[in-house]
Amino acid sequence: MCPDHPEHTGHSYAPHKEDLLRRLRRIEGQVRGLQKMIEEDRYCVDILVQVSAVKSALHQVGLTILESHTRGCVADALANREQGDEKVDELMDVIRQFTRS
């Protein structure tokens, strides 16, 4: 639910919820695999490749949620002229945070 739009009964990512949860469970498994690799003293490069894969997978989850938020909460705020500027500012802040390395 968008905090500024109580009429919304769900989050904008709701249509993607099962896919997001599936992806996050897969990422959780990858992270456990990384822990095991370190416990087993695996080769550094192999570990780094897996770290990169986890980062990429998390980035994709974030992009999906970011797109849903933009098409949902932000688009609604702009269409209804309710706090549109505030929503765009919030969106830009989250994009800046999301794109930091």
Rank of each mutant, 00 (worst) to 15 (best):
residue 8 H to W: 06
residue 22 R to C: 01
residue 19 D to T: 13
residue 14 A to N: 10
residue 40 E to A: 04
residue 32 R to K: 08
residue 1 M to L: 10
residue 82 E to G: 02
residue 34 L to Y: 07
residue 13 Y to D: 02
residue 84 G to A: 12
residue 20 L to S: 05
residue 19 D to L: 11
residue 72 G to D: 10
residue 85 D to V: 15
residue 87 K to H: 13
residue 38 I to S: 01
residue 75 A to I: 09
residue 34 L to S: 02
residue 90 E to C: 06
residue 87 K to L: 03
residue 39 E to C: 02
residue 37 M to I: 07
residue 89 D to C: 07
residue 61 V to N: 04
residue 101 S to C: 07
residue 60 Q to A: 11
residue 59 H to K: 14
residue 69 H to L: 09
residue 88 V to R: 12
residue 88 V to A: 05
residue 99 T to R: 12
residue 63 L to T: 12
residue 99 T to V: 14
residue 78 L to P: 01
residue 86 E to Q: 12
residue 14 A to I: 08
residue 41 D to F: 02
residue 26 R to K: 08
residue 19 D to V: 09
residue 14 A to G: 01
residue 98 F to G: 02
residue 52 S to T: 14
residue 86 E to C: 01
residue 77 A to E: 15
residue 16 H to Q: 12
residue 65 I to Q: 03
residue 46 D to W: 07
residue 54 V to R: 01
residue 91 L to V: 13
residue 76 D to Q: 12
residue 33 G to A: 05
residue 36 K to D: 06
residue 61 V to D: 03
residue 99 T to K: 12
residue 92 M to C: 05
residue 72 G to T: 15
residue 64 T to F: 05
residue 59 H to Q: 13
residue 3 P to R: 10
residue 15 P to I: 03
residue 47 I to Y: 06
residue 10 G to Q: 11
residue 23 R to L: 04
residue 34 L to W: 08
residue 6 P to L: 11
residue 93 D to P: 01
residue 41 D to K: 06
residue 25 R to V: 01
residue 75 A to S: 14
residue 74 V to W: 04
residue 40 E to M: 07
residue 68 S to I: 13
residue 22 R to P: 00
residue 57 A to K: 02
residue 88 V to G: 03
residue 100 R to F: 10
residue 55 K to W: 11
residue 65 I to C: 02
residue 70 T to M: 13
residue 6 P to K: 13
residue 21 L to S: 01
